[in-house]
Amino acid sequence: MELTGFLAVLAAFLPIVYGAPTTAASSLHPEILAAMKRDLGLDAEQAHVRVARELKATEVIDELRTLAGNSFGGAWLVDGELNVAVTKESLTSEVAAAGAKALVVSVPLSKLEEAKNAIDNLDIEQTLGKRSDEAASGIAAYYVDVAANKLVLEALADSIAQAAELANKVGLTESEYEVRTVENLPTTFATIRGGDAYLINLGGRCSVGFSVTTGFVSAGHCGTVGATASTTAGATIGTFAGSVFPGNGDYSFIRGSTGNTYTGRINNYNGGTLPVSGSTAAATGASICRSGSTTGVFCGTVRSLGATVSYAQGRVTGLTQTSVCAEPGDSGGSFYSGAQAQGVTSGGSGNCNSGGTTYFQPVNEILSAYGLTLVRG
């Protein structure tokens, strides 16, 4: 299908994407609305419209990326409005006609993604000439910032030069990457400070992510294969049947014990529950919320997709970076956009008093990896 031909099809989407909310999006749970009002400054009508736009914008982004091919520069949302970047001026009129703001950039998204993947395949310590007994490389995370049209590397102050060296190593010029200084390396949230959903081997605690028909999913750093999951009262509820961490994810599947009931709801840690109706992935810039046992419900926005994070235990690829805060005890908990499941809390930095950055493992990758079916409520 030609891009111009796609516009006729897209016209059917525009009233939803840029107009009134859909029926599905206009039924947001009151707890979600309250959190979005507190953290994003949105009233009920604004929240409904924004979630509807974001949900449909995901489809539009996928179509435009396919049709623009190597000229696609990325797409992101700003307060619910869609921005689409292309490397060819000739495509801007079609993008604008689709209802999105068109921008011309110099670097194709594919080049930045390839550079990021190339770093994933490097042994960073060896590449930078570090000894095995030294601390972590000082590279906190790296990801493609589509709005900046650059590969961003976050590093401690004394590792700025090393971060630039990595970018140069994979063939990027100074105009194609940016090194940003961070004060701390990210950590996982496995150390629990409050009440939680389940215990691992009657010791450490983590949060349930989402129910599946045969158990539930959570963070991989919470437990290894064979570990037992139990309630805080000590009753066994399942066994870790799969766990990935570090490496190409931070996720686990806990196969439930006989007799358990798993519902498509999220504990709001305030005496109620929130519904899960699907798992459509949110775009960069979309609003997103997190529910965890230590801090409850907090909201923010998606900052980047496919980020690689350097934890003390090793690098983890494929995480989503957000502006939502989290604290120890929130690990494995639910990330969601509206009623759409997004992922399970992995780790980050900061806290919910001063703010912070948190990463989550996308839930669709977990479902695909283990052939699981999400329970909907």
Rank of each mutant, 00 (worst) to 15 (best):
N117H: 06
D120C: 03
A97R: 14
V107G: 06
N121H: 13
E114N: 14
L112S: 00
S110Y: 00
E114C: 01
L91K: 08
I119E: 03
N117W: 04
E113P: 01
A100E: 03
S90W: 01
A98T: 03
K111W: 06
S106L: 12
A100N: 05
V107L: 02
K116W: 01
K101N: 02
N121M: 10
L122P: 07
N117Y: 03
G99K: 13
P108T: 04
E113C: 06
K88Q: 12
I124D: 07
T127Q: 13
L91M: 02
A118W: 04
V95H: 02
K116I: 02
V105C: 10
S106Q: 15
T92Y: 08
Q126K: 15
V95R: 09
E125Y: 08
A98Y: 00
L91P: 01
N121D: 12
T92A: 08
S93Y: 01
L103K: 13
T127E: 15
G99C: 09
A115E: 04
E94L: 09
N117Q: 13
V86A: 15
T127A: 15
D123S: 14
L112F: 04
D123I: 00
E94H: 01
V86T: 15
S110Q: 15
S93V: 08
L109P: 12
A98H: 09
A96K: 10
G99Y: 09
S106I: 03
K101V: 10
D123M: 07
K101G: 00
P108A: 05
S93G: 02
A96E: 12
V104N: 10
V95P: 05
E114Q: 14
K101R: 11
A115C: 11
A96F: 02
S110N: 11
D123Q: 11
E94T: 07
A102Y: 01
A115Q: 10
